[in-house]
C-alpha cells in the first residue's frame, strides 16, 4: 500500500515534469518533420549530438568568457543550447539531403545517422576532453519560480526552482500547435505531408517545406539533447539519451501528430521515466522499471491505447518529374 501513495507524490510529479521535457522537445520536432512527410528515425542520433554539443557549448563558453559568465551565469548554458540546436540542424540537414534530394529510404537514412552520431560523439569527445565517453561538469540555468503558483504551498515542488527550459518547451508546444493549425507555414507543411502532388500544383515548394520541417525537427531534438546534458545531468556522457529519441517518435504517434497530443503522450512517458529515476519501492526488479517507457511505447504503437492517423504521404519520397 505504501508504494501506491508514493506513486502519486508531488515530488514524483515534479520529477516527471522534468524528465518529460527531452521526450517532449524531440516529439515536437518529430511532429514538424512528419507533418511535412519525412519520417525521422535519426532523432535519437540528433539528440546524441545535442547532448554532446550542449555540454561542449556550455563548457567552452564558460572557459572562453569567464568574466562575462561571472556577470551573467545563464550565458554559458544558453550558448550550450544554441550549439546543440545548430548541431542538431546540421545533422538533420544530412537527413534532409539524403531523403528529400536523393530520395533514399527515410528509415535507412535515419538508422545510418544514428550510427554516425555514436561514432562522431565518441570521436569528438576524445578531441575535446581526452576521453571517449564523458565531458567535464557544466553549469545549468538559474532555476526560476512560477509567479502565481509558487504562492500555493502544496504546489511548492512543482512551481519553484524549475528550469526555464521547461517553460520554453511548453511555450514551444503552444506555438507549434498554433503554427500547424493556423499559420500559412503550418498549413503548407501539412499540405506537403498529406498530398505533395496537389501542394506542388498549387505552387508550394514541396522540397523547401520538407527541408524546413526536417531542420526544425533537428533544432528541437538538439535542444532536447541539450536539456538532458545541461539541465538534467550537468554533463555529457555516452548513452545518456537511452533511446529517448525513439520514445519521442512513439509519443508523437500517440499524440496523433499534433503538438498538444505529443505533450500529453510525452507526459505519460515522462511519468514512467520518473518512476525509474525515483527510488520508489516497487515489487518489480529495477531493470524492468527502467524499461517501462519502452514497454509502454510498444503498447501505444500496437494501438492498445488508441488508434492514430498519420499524414497520408508520411515516409513517401516526393519526386517532381513523372516517372
Amino acid at each position: 500500500m505504501e508504494y501506491v501513495t508514493s506513486l502519486l507524490s508531488l515530488a514524483l510529479i515534479a520529477s516527471a515534469i522534468r524528465v518529460t521535457m527531452p521526450i517532449l522537445l524531440a516529439a515536437l520536432g518529430a511532429v514538424y518533420s512528419e507533418r511535412g512527410g519525412v519520417i525521422n528515425i535519426g532523432l535519437e542520433g540528433i539528440m546524441i549530438m545535442g547532448t554532446f554539443f550542449g555540454a561542449v557549448g556550455d563548457y567552452v563558453f564558460a572557459r572562453q568568457y569567464p568574466a562575462l559568465v561571472a556577470a551573467i551565469p545563464d550565458l554559458a548554458p544558453a550558448a550550450g543550447v544554441l550549439a546543440a540546436m545548430l548541431a542538431g540542424m546540421a545533422f538533420a540537414l544530412i537527413h534532409a539531403l539524403v531523403t528529400i534530394t536523393f530520395r533514399v529510404d527515410q528509415i535507412i537514412s535515419g538508422v545510418a545517422l544514428n550510427l554516425l552520431a555514436v561514432g562522431l560523439a565518441r570521436f569528438l569527445n576524445i578531441l575535446f576532453f581526452g576521453v571517449a565517453t564523458q565531458s567535464p561538469g557544466v553549469s545549468g540555468f538559474t532555476p526560476v519560480d512560477i509567479p502565481i503558483l509558487e504562492g500555493i504551498p502544496v504546489l511548492g515542488p512543482i512551481a519553484t526552482g524549475i528550469s526555464p527550459m521547461i517553460l520554453v518547451a511548453l511555450l514551444l508546444v503552444l506555438i507549434g500547435h498554433w503554427t500547424l493549425l493556423r499559420t500559412r507555414f503550418g498549413l503548407r507543411l501539412r499540405g506537403v505531408g498529406e498530398h505533395p502532388r496537389a501542394a506542388d500544383t498549387l505552387g508550394i515548394n514541396v522540397y523547401g517545406m520538407r527541408y524546413a520541417g526536417v531542420l526544425i525537427s533537428g533544432a528541437l531534438a538538439g535542444m532536447a539533447g541539450a536539456y538532458l546534458a545541461i539541465e538534467q545531468a550537468h554533463l555529457y556522457f555516452e548513452g545518456m539519451t537511452q533511446g529517448r529519441g525513439f520514445i519521442a517518435l512513439a509519443a508523437m504517434i500517440f499524440g496523433n501528430w499534433w503538438p498538444l497530443g505529443a505533450l500529453g503522450a510525452s507526459a505519460l512517458f515522462g511519468y514512467f521515466d520518473a518512476l525509474s529515476l525515483r527510488v520508489v519501492v516497487l515489487p518489480v526488479p529495477s531493470q524492468f522499471i527502467n524499461v517501462l517507457p519502452h514497454i509502454v511505447s510498444i503498447l501505444v504503437l500496437a494501438g492498445f491505447v488508441r488508434r492514430a492517423q498519420p499524414p497520408a504521404a508520411d515516409g513517401v519520397p516526393y519526386t517532381k518529374e513523372e516517372e
Partner: peptide, 23 residues
Amino acid sequence: VPKEVIVILQALIILAIVVAYEL
C-alpha cells in the same frame, strides 16, 4: 588517431552507399 574515426567511416560508407544505389 582515435579508432572511432573508423566507426565514422563505416557510417559514412552506409550513407554513401544508399545514395549511390538510389542514383
